[in-house]
């Protein structure tokens, strides 16, 4: 028995999963490692798109080995990566008949609401499907971050009620959230015209598009070099 225990199995994993993926992108043997890694990402609140796509690829090559519970976790993690298009990237690799399962249909609906910025509907639907999404810690917070991202692209000053709807906070929870953002992210508070609260979001090139620097009237050095011989 002792002889069968290779030293490799005894020593702690000498490669990180990311390295494993980089070295063996097309090796079915790493499938169990990748599945474990998905669970690890869930519990440690980390994320690796490359590793997860690699796993979906192996499932695509060998559909018999597919574990739909793992697939669901990958998709929830991908939703949490919005505004990046990771959710679609994963769906492209999942066979249509698998996508027909109820839990995936729900996730696709959730993704649709986020993509079209319908936050009210999103939070309602998420509440109904709590058992699916609460498996992954940090889900709500990640969606709130995405909502703040979209709001900061769109608004210079935002009415409190709109913010409340987008991040699904009300009353004291909302006050606390705003307070925190004021302290850490440069949010300011203002009174609106009918005594309602207005939040001034930090200025960026997206909510002040006129600030976007116009690259059109600058000339790359490469082009100038054409006239160097003439100038000299």
């Amino acid at each position: 028995m002792g002889r069968e225990m290779t030293p490799k199995q005894q020593s702690p994993m000498s490669y990180t999963v990311e390295q494993l993926v980089a070295v063996n992108p097309y090796n079915p043997d790493i499938l169990p490692d990748l599945e474990n890694y998905v669970n690890e990402q869930v519990s440690s609140q980390t994320y690796s798109l490359d590793a997860n796509l690699c796993l979906l690829r192996l499932y695509q090559f060998e559909p018999d080995r597919m574990n739909t519970q793992i697939v669901a976790r990958i998709l929830i993690k991908a939703l949490m990566a919005m505004p990046a298009p990771d959710f679609s990237l994963c769906l492209f690799l999942i066979p249509e008949r698998v996508q027909m399962e109820d839990q995936f249909k729900t996730l696709i609906v959730l993704s649709h609401y986020l993509e079209t910025a319908r936050f009210r509907q999103f939070w309602d639907e998420a509440a109904k499907s709590r058992q699916i999404v609460e498996v992954v810690p940090g889900f709500e917070q990640a969606v709130q971050e995405y909502a703040i991202h979209v709001l900061s692209l769109t608004y210079q000053k935002i009415p409190r009620t709109i913010l409340a709807e987008a991040i699904n906070f009300e009353g004291p929870a909302l006050d606390k959230f705003i307070e925190h953002q004021v302290a850490t992210s440069g949010w300011l508070l203002e009174k609106g015209h009918d005594k309602s609260q207005l939040i001034v979001l930090p200025c960026n090139e997206f909510n002040h598009p006129e600030l976007k620097k116009n690259t059109a009237d600058s000339i790359p050095l490469q082009h100038i070099t054409r006239i160097f011989p003439i100038l000299s």
Binding site: T154, Y155, K157, P209, K212
Partner: peptide, 11 residues
């Protein structure tokens, strides 16, 4: 930004 027409909302 890929927008040719962009905007922002103030309240």
């Amino acid at each position: 930004s890929n927008a040719d027409i962009d905007f922002s909302i103030n309240d």
